[in-house]
Design a protein around this nucleic acid. Sequence first.
DNA 1: CCGCATCCCCCCGGATACTG
DNA 2: CAGTATCCGGGGGGATGCGG
Lengths: 213, 213
Amino acid sequence: MAPREYGQYDGITRAMELVGERWALLIVRDLLVGPRRYGELAAGLPRIPSNVLAARLKELQAAGVLRRAPRSRVVIYELTPYGRELEPVVLALGAWGFKAMGDPREEQILSPDAMTISLRTAFRPQVAATLPATAYAAHVGPAELRIQVDGPTLDVTREDGPADLAFATGPGIHRLLTGELAPARAIETGVVEVLRGPGDLLGRFAETFHLAA
Amino acid sequence: MAPREYGQYDGITRAMELVGERWALLIVRDLLVGPRRYGELAAGLPRIPSNVLAARLKELQAAGVLRRAPRSRVVIYELTPYGRELEPVVLALGAWGFKAMGDPREEQILSPDAMTISLRTAFRPQVAATLPATAYAAHVGPAELRIQVDGPTLDVTREDGPADLAFATGPGIHRLLTGELAPARAIETGVVEVLRGPGDLLGRFAETFHLAA
DNA sequence: CCGCATCCCCCCGGATACTG
DNA sequence: CAGTATCCGGGGGGATGCGG
């Protein structure tokens, strides 16, 4: 159960030993959104084998990255303070990888937690501060994401509630965030489907969230 | 030769597909110091099997992270501009992993390139700016590292030259950077061996380079 | 039904030898 | 010196089982 080692003594090597195994950083990514149960993690990572998920959770716990928290008869996995310190790393890595994303393939999914982290990465506080406070409801897959922008602060939750603009989308939203796809065309082509509210608000959304290609 | 996929469409997943394989980020770490030949990379990563190194180099090249550059009859591997954009990620990951480092074990080495990156991570420009310009010569393993601090700028190279303080050290220097080990005691205990120059300059070194434990 | 454990297969990674 | 070839063990992928 001891992690595989690299035989070197420096920070990066140590980090790779702690969170460098396959799937580990994707588990951290989802836990950065909030505490999750085993089944929720499995649902957000459909292609992870159950034994690997169980093994990673044990290793990450032993590494001090996450902790099993017994909450009223069920087990919840949550990041430790040390694990939460990975947030800037994960966001920076996400911004870097974002630049190398091509078009989504059929088998590739966008989970609600992954989208939440992508939005945190793409959020531009200084731009948002100049825009009116806005609440969006984004339907991604079966889940609804409530995205509240209020000045320079961003809050993404999974509770639903009133929103100025409600839309459904999938992996294709990537091209909206890069600016490669204009908001109007995103709606025309069906990449984004407006459910409620004025479609022009998608322009404000695209201004608020942006990532380099 | 296509990378293993995770079936998700977001930036972190893409990043893991590009640089998430075992050893990949350690190769990137060393190339962040400068272009390297195959043998130099192998020397800095003694435990990597040669076939794995060859495979990673091909994959990272295909990923657009590095490039094979023919230089006067020999092949040099160097990061592309996109690969160099990993620097903040690698430094942040190194700072994070640094906090989880225990004492070095016998089989763990500190390579010159790893030490160079560690120094970049630990460098405190604002502190250095208040100190006189100083050149250190650090002997780590068989190699000599010339560390030049001039105001808020840091330059670490492998050429040797005059230095205000020359010292030899190994993995144990870690405890000096955290402040856990006082400079004077580092010399007393042999963690740092002063070769030339006044040993008190090690205090300036410890002020200039610092990492949280 | 959720949270894993078990089993099996396959492929990647580790070690070593070998070649242009 | 710069990789390639080969063999082997172990970890990951996938399906299934099972206890609380």
